[in-house]
Design a protein around this nucleic acid. Structure first.
Lengths: 185, 185
DNA sequence: TAGAACGTACAGTTTAAACTTTACGTACTG
DNA sequence: CAGTACGTAAAGTTTAAACTGTACGTTCTA
């Protein structure tokens, strides 16, 4: 269970103390991924573990109920930030952090941003259709037409942005971004 | 005050009904920017306005207290998603949406992600220093050394990612991203 | 200079999120 | 086939966030 069992008490103490700063910082800044502080800490605590962890282990380590850890793990798993591992003879679920953070980042954008962009594009498309219908209907009414044109132009501008964003997300998804901005300097 | 005053009741009705889908969608998906749903709606409602709006106008339009609108406006302003405008003879604060969404996106990353990356890098740097000190101290202890090395390698990997991410953020901030992925297809 | 309009700090209230406890379905074990 | 361990759904509780109402400082107006 405890991969630090072979260390002396003093060593374990020093190690955990040293790790803490990194764990706290990583966990805290995961709100960027829309993740709550305690789930961020969960991830941070898993970060240094060499071996995959179980629900019970993390529950005990963090002083949270097993249910909380369970839902936290699912959240992290949905975002592909941790992996479910099939371990030896254990019938417990085992989890470990996905070590490739570049991949992490890409997945996050694919999952979250792609969905949002598609929803907004769809809504804008429908809205523009309706505006165009109104423009046909009221083509004689100069005052109304001016307002309608304003709305249409505004949405066309937004559409341009969304198309650009989709190409950016594409580049994350297919890895082209790492040609444009290489992993190694 | 009301830029739609010159329209007939029917026209205004149709227009607002048509706009609503876009407003809802835009507002809803702003949780990606760490923004609450109602502030997202505030932004969505401002989106179509041709003229800058005041606190009172939006308060009435959204059925929220002026205080709520005030704090919402500040949040949006901090993220540079809206601009404070100095209008004619009015002494009310006037706000309008920043129309350049590419710029919006860049600013968001500069503000939010840059800070997080710097914090994490700083924490990791300190943590690595301490690990190295321990490695000197316990250089004879093979068991402990193995654990320490594992931690150090893990953090070095993370540092690579953060350096990459900083270069990505740089490209947003200085606009290079729009050379790599052009606004126009 | 008194009075009104404006934006926001602050304290209090309501609503939503996080977390726990209990209970249940499933899959191993003897 | 009972008995046990495991993960999670569901309901209940606690904690935090969102929102409101009041009050105050500032700035403009008469």
């Amino acid at each position: 269970m405890n991969e630090l069992a072979d260390l002396t008490d003093e060593q374990r103490e020093q190690l955990l103390h040293t790790r803490r700063r990194a764990i706290e910082s990583i966990g805290k800044n995961m709100d960027l991924y829309g993740i709550t502080l305690s789930i961020g800490h969960l991830y941070g605590n898993m970060y240094f573990n060499q071996e995959p962890v179980t629900l019970n282990e993390m529950s005990e380590a963090m002083g949270l109920s097993k249910t909380s850890i369970s839902t936290g793990m699912r959240t992290l798993h949905d975002l592909k930030m941790i992996n479910k591992v099939w371990g030896k003879g254990s019938r417990k679920d085992l989890y470990e952090v996905e070590p490739d953070w570049h991949q992490n980042f890409s997945d996050f954008f694919s999952i979250k941003w792609r969905k949002a962009v598609e929803q907004n594009r769809s809504a804008l498309r429908k809205c523009m259709k309706e505006i165009e219908t109104l423009e046909e209907q009221y083509s004689e009414d100069a005052v109304f037409m001016k307002v309608l044109e304003h709305d249409r132009l505004k949405m066309q501008e937004s559409m341009k942005y969304y198309k650009w964003l989709e190409r950016l997300i594409d580049s994350f998804e297919n890895g082209d971004i790492f040609t444009l901005i290489p992993k190694e300097e």
